Simulated scan of single mutants.
Amino acid sequence: MERSRIAVAGASGLIGSALVRSLTADGHEVVRLVRRVPRTKDEIRWDPEARFVDAADLTGCHAVVNLAGAGVGSRRWTKAYKARIQGSRLLGTAALAEAMASLDTPPRVFVNGSAIGYYGDTGDRVVDESAPPGQGFLPELCVRWEAAASPAERAGVRTVFVRTGLVVARHGGAWGRLFPLFEAGLGGRLGSGRQYWSWVSLHDEVAAIRHLLDSDDLSGPFNVTAPEPLTNREITAAMGRVLNRPTLFTVPEPVLRTVLGELSGDVLGSTRAVPKRLLESGFTFAFPDIEGAVRAAL
């Protein structure tokens, strides 16, 4: 993609900050959506919960990337926090989509966040982008999250949904909480360890988003996960090998359910998602194996 003006919501998060660094390094003009009063010319104000963004601020943008949303695994899922998770995604996505649709010359592409939570618990069954949504809070959220982008789609904006897996990164996200435990020798499997985790390195996550931004013929949902999902037991063993630490500890399912509440279903659930459409589009993973991804994160 030629040097362009790209708006990024969620630019301070794990994936967003890495994406902004990548785009800026290649000479793109990145404008970040912030909730406070803008301090520099590369910031524009929005309020996702209030469904507000000034469409004029998006004028001249080639692309909009929306990675904003309250952390799904940040805290216990109380009724209030579940409402915050939903609002931060649905209202923010709708605000951006409607703002783009109102412009005489809208951005050419809208890359919107989503998650493999769309599929729910699939057990040992492999799922690609053609699979239907599962049941429960996360699948229902993902369906509504993607649907919220429909005003942009109807306005002719090429719209892509990035169904992201667990991102392997040293700081931030689920892996950011795993690393300190494993480094202290306290790592181990969660529950039975037989549940599949569809993971992706932070490097490949950013590269995939860049690929989807650049490919004018790609739209719709894309699983952004490494080609081979692994069980929690296999990932635990790999972490132990790379960090040279024992992995003797096990957190039983009843303990996880007591501590995490409804969130434990996401930790103990099994989603064996594969990036069929991403691979078919010609994307190549730099870190297709878990040990390489863990070493890259370190």
Rank of each mutant, 00 (worst) to 15 (best):
M1K: 03
A7W: 02
G10F: 00
L19K: 00
V20I: 00
S22N: 12
L23N: 00
D26Q: 14
V31R: 01
D42L: 02
E43M: 02
W46D: 01
W46V: 00
D47G: 02
P48K: 00
P48W: 00
A50T: 05
L58A: 09
G60V: 08
C61I: 09
H62D: 03
V64W: 11
N66G: 03
A70W: 01
S74A: 11
W77S: 01
W77K: 01
K79Q: 11
K82L: 12
Q86G: 10
G87L: 07
S88F: 06
L91M: 11
L91R: 11
T93M: 10
T93F: 09
A99S: 13
M100T: 02
R108F: 08
V109S: 05
I116M: 05
G117I: 01
Y119M: 09
Y119G: 12
G123K: 12
V127Q: 04
E129L: 15
S130W: 15
P132W: 13
Q135P: 09
F137S: 11
L141W: 04
L141C: 06
C142V: 15
R144A: 14
W145F: 05
A147G: 11
S150E: 15
E153P: 05
R154E: 14
A155I: 02
V162R: 06
G165Y: 01
V168M: 04
A169M: 05
G173K: 00
W175Q: 00
L186I: 08
L190Y: 06
S192M: 05
W197P: 09
S198F: 07
S198Y: 08
V206C: 07
A207N: 09
H211C: 13
H211T: 13
P221E: 08
F222E: 05
F222V: 08
A226G: 02
T231V: 07
N232V: 06
E234Y: 03
I235M: 14
A237M: 09
M239C: 10
N244C: 15
T247F: 06
V251T: 14
P252H: 12
T258Y: 15
E262A: 13
L263I: 12
D266N: 13
L268F: 11
T271S: 12
P275N: 09
P275V: 07
K276G: 05
R277G: 06
L279Q: 14
S281N: 00
T284H: 12
D289S: 13
I290A: 08
R295T: 11
L298M: 11
